[in-house]
Every structure is written in structure tokens, then in C-alpha cells.
Amino acid sequence: MRAILATLLAGFFSVIALGMLGAGAFWVKYEKPEPQPIAYPHDLHAGKLNLECTHCHVYVDKSQYATVPAMKICMDCHKDAQIVSPEIDKLKKFWENEEPIPWQRIHSVPNHVYFSHERHVKFFAAKGETYKDGQICAKCHGNMKVVKEVKQTRTLKMGFCVSCHRAEGAPTDCWTCHKS
């Protein structure tokens, strides 16, 4: 009887231990972001230098895609700015080799979703909101003026979308967002 109990207990705790291990592995796999090829500081560019979001994300109010800026946009400033940093050296190396920087994607919606940055930015801009902290972009991306490394701070799942659509009186028909 004792032996059976011991086995059961051991089994029980080993299951818990396995679960914890699993959770750990899950965190590594799902939560911890992959390092970016260049440690680009949003807090410096958007925060300290106070550049408008559209300075680099030029298509955010023109296209459904905000787009990660073309490297030429980086180099327009950095070829003159006399800043010495190992990260900028990396950037210059990519530029010299004419290689695109393989950024790690952080925010994404599934393929079956139609999401237009242009539509959303224009909507909030029409309400008088701006790119300043807590306003337009921050609704989905968090306040980028204070983060060093970009992390996903909203779920960007359907519930998140629909709650905002309801609050703002936007359409909630399926094909508003689901691709036909």
C-alpha cells in the first residue's frame, strides 16, 4: 500500500515537474523574443530625438502595410551623423553589402486577416489624435517612445480587434477584417 502510495505521489510530483519544465520551454519558445540583428533603440529615435513615426514608417498612412523602413532611410541620416557604435557599424556593413537587414517580425496578424494601417491611422487622425505617446500607434503597439526593444504588448487577437471596433462604432461584419 505504502509502495503504491509512494509511486502515485512520485508520479504526481513528476507530472508537476514536467508541467513546469514544459512551461519553461514554452516561455523560451513563445515569450522570449528572438534578438534583432541590430539593437535599434526606439526610445532614442522616437523618444529622445522625437522623430515622428512617419519619418521612418513612411507608408503607415498610405498603405495597408506600415512597412519596416528601407535601409536608405536609415542611411539618409547615418551617413552624416558622426556617431560611433558597434550597432551602427553593423548597419553600415549591411548597407555596403547591399543586403537587407533580416529583422525579426514581432507584430503580425494571420494571413486570412485584412488589416490596413492606412485606414486605422486615418480614422484616428481624423478624430484629432496624433502620433504622440498613447495615441494612434500606441493603441496596438504600446508606447514606442519608451521601449528600447520592441515587444508585443497587445494580443492582436480577434477579441482585441472587436472590442475596439465596438467602442469606436466601426463595422463588425466578418468581411470587414476577414479576407473574402
Partner: peptide
């Protein structure tokens, strides 16, 4: 136990392993 572990494993944000390759020019 097993089911709660499964539930735990299935929530959270799926991490993208996709790369974004912007234009050089």
C-alpha cells in the same frame, strides 16, 4: 494535471519566427 498543462501551453501569444526583409533602396 495533464489538461491544465495543455491549457497553459495553448495560451499566450504565438511568437513569430518570420523575418522581415525591407528594401535596401
Amino acid at each position: 494535471m495533464a489538461s491544465s498543462a495543455t491549457v497553459l501551453a495553448s495560451c499566450g501569444v504565438e511568437k513569430s519566427t518570420e523575418k522581415i526583409l525591407p528594401f535596401v533602396v
